[in-house]
Amino acid sequence: MRDYVIKRISQGILLVIVVSILVFAMLDLMPGDPINIMTDRKVSEEVKEQLRIEYHLNLPLHQRYVIWVKDMLHGNFGKSIKSKLPVMDMMKARLPVTLKLTLTALLVELVIAVPIGLLAAYKKDSIFDRIVMDVSLFFTAVPSYWIAVVFMLLFAVKLRVLPLSGFSTPLHYVLPVASLVVSGIASTIRMTKTEVLDVLREKYVLTAYAKGLKKKSVLVKHVLRNALILVTIMFFMSVPWVISGAVIIENIFTIPGMGQMLTSGILNQDFPIVQACVFILAILTVVCNLICDIITAVLDPRIRISLGGEN
């Protein structure tokens, strides 16, 4: 198990390095000169040259990459071209907001979706199942921003029960979280249902009934326990997706999270910000995959033991 974890971590680090090179190189290929964007036309060429040197833009790509990585290892993501603030400080303020938003949304989603998916699978073809499937089909078809806007109009503008935008109180999180949940829940329900249906067809479920277990025990101890392995994988795999979904939601509700920072960074060609954001997203993805692999190994003895030893 320990060897396995070490192996997965080194693979993860390798992946992060590759991604960082790609991110760095790709932004360099973006059209337009960031210095021209940040300065006025009146600014003289000398000053511009000065700025280029300050941002290391005069150096060749590979040297800039090395500098960037070195700085990053010292917790320095460079300075925003637009605001001149250190990117690291901005990130420190904004990443927690995004994580809070997305993790809350994911948890709420799971708590609602897993029982519904389980029940829909168990009562397959019942009225309950059909209603759930039809409604979820509808929600997979509508985009999250549409739901967000509808929620805003309904609860904030018309009923005035919830704040329209911002992030200062927990109440402010209700609509953004709800929008994220509603847009993601349909696919989670469907996936849970599919997985539970698969498990329900397993022979060991018949064994569980045959030895005399009650329906509820069979469902919880044997069906859900096994289906949860996939649900866990799903959960961690979807963290990066939900974060990308949060980009739009943050913009709609003007929540100053990383998503908003990323979009404005792209619009302003503020390359240090874009680099930092994409890089953080990449790391998050890798970390989630890693957690996912380890948890699966813990939950599934077939994997755990094939990895050698139980501890």
Partner: peptide
Amino acid sequence: FQNPLDSLNPV
């Protein structure tokens, strides 16, 4: 049942 591998819960 027929297949003893499938008949026991792997976890």
